[in-house]
């Protein structure tokens, strides 16, 4: 019959082993791994034309984020069709401003950007499902060990 002493011994080593797994799991997972993700995002295409309908090929684009109106968040150049594509920073919701200029002519338009419904989490940042499981096991085992410790003392 297994004694309390043996159980506690086993529990302590399991806890320590679990801790080791938890601490090393990111390194184990990323040793030679490749994590390729594909997340659909909404891009914005700016099409700049003169009043005549002629594309503003080479138009200078300056994009301003709503919380920093004095400095361009992004600059670029329209292609031959007067097109410029960019992806706004959806973590900065509000009225974005897009300015296109060429040879003394230009205009400024505004675009309301709302926060993305769900933030895209960088794989290196949040806890993975495996890490969460290990964390739960460690805490559970630790709680059981503690309970045994206090129950032993009281007896």
């Amino acid at each position: 019959m297994e004694t309390i002493n043996n159980r506690a011994f086993r529990l302590s080593w399991i806890s320590l082993a679990s801790a080791l797994i938890l601490l090393l799991s990111p390194f184990i997972v990323s040793a030679h791994g490749v994590d390729i993700g594909a997340v659909p995002i909404s891009a914005v295409e700016v099409i700049a034309l003169y009043d005549s309908g002629k594309p503003m090929a080479g138009g200078q684009v300056a994009i301003y984020a709503p919380d920093e109106p004095l400095e361009p968040w992004l600059t670029g150049t329209c292609d031959e069709e007067g097109s410029f594509i960019f992806v706004p920073d959806y973590s900065r919701p509000g009225l974005w401003e897009i300015q296109v200029r060429l040879a003394g002519h230009g205009d400024l338009i505004r675009l309301e950007v709302t926060a993305a419904e769900e933030a895209v989490v960088d794989g290196s940042g949040g806890l993975s499902f495996l890490q969460k499981i290990v964390m739960a096991l460690v805490v559970a085992w630790g709680a059981i060990g503690t309970a045994f410790y206090f129950s032993r003392r009281s007896s």
């Binding site: 506690a8 085992w141 630790g142 503690t146």
Partner: peptide, 15 residues
């Protein structure tokens, strides 16, 4: 007994 249980407690708290 305590020499096994105490590491378990402290390692749990630490974790």
């Amino acid at each position: 007994m305590r020499r096994f249980v105490l590491p378990a407690v402290f390692s749990t708290i630490f974790l």
